[in-house]
């Protein structure tokens, strides 16, 4: 019977920390699942306008982003510029960008390709209209003006 006998030592038993990894793992998985890696470094300042009638963009893999805003680095001026992926671009480059983005997704999903325009509030409409015209020309009709939710 001495087999079951514990070594009785006096003093406080230590708090078991063996479940700590489990708790941390739980948090870890939560963040892993919710994480969306930032794919592009922004060279332009984009402060989105706010609106109330917003819709969520579903299926992020079918979304292409066009950023417009004043360059962060004032070396490039203060005029609004377009950023596609990781480079500054001109309006003429939008069509090519859309074409590449569209080709990267499955053929069956191509009609659902959406362009999300992330445009700074300070931007003038001229450049936005140019981009919209360019999108129409290359047949990317589905688009979304990225906005924040307006908290009243």
């Amino acid at each position: 019977m001495s087999r079951f006998k514990k070594n009785d030592k006096k003093g406080l038993p230590e708090i078991s920390t063996s479940s700590l990894p489990d708790i941390i793992f739980m948090l870890l998985f939560f963040f892993m699942v919710t994480t969306v890696m930032r794919q592009t470094t922004l060279f332009v300042q984009v402060k989105l306008p706010s609106a109330t009638e917003i819709q969520k963009l579903e299926r992020k893999e079918l979304v292409g982003y066009v950023y417009v805003g004043a360059p962060v680095n004032t070396m490039y001026g203060t005029e609004s510029r377009i950023q596609l992926n990781d480079v500054f671009a001109d309006v003429d480059d939008v069509a090519e960008f859309v074409e590449i983005e569209k080709n990267a997704i499955k053929e069956a999903d191509r009609p659902y390709y959406t362009t999300s325009l992330k445009i700074d509030v300070e931007t003038k409409m001229g450049i936005v209209t140019d981009i919209k015209q360019e999108l129409r020309k290359c047949g990317a009709y589905k688009m979304s003006y990225a906005t924040r939710k307006n908290i009243d």
Binding site: K60, L135, K142, T147
Partner: peptide, 8 residues
């Protein structure tokens, strides 16, 4: 990603 959706 949220925004106002439009169809051109």
């Amino acid at each position: 990603d949220t925004g106002i959706s439009r169809k051109l």
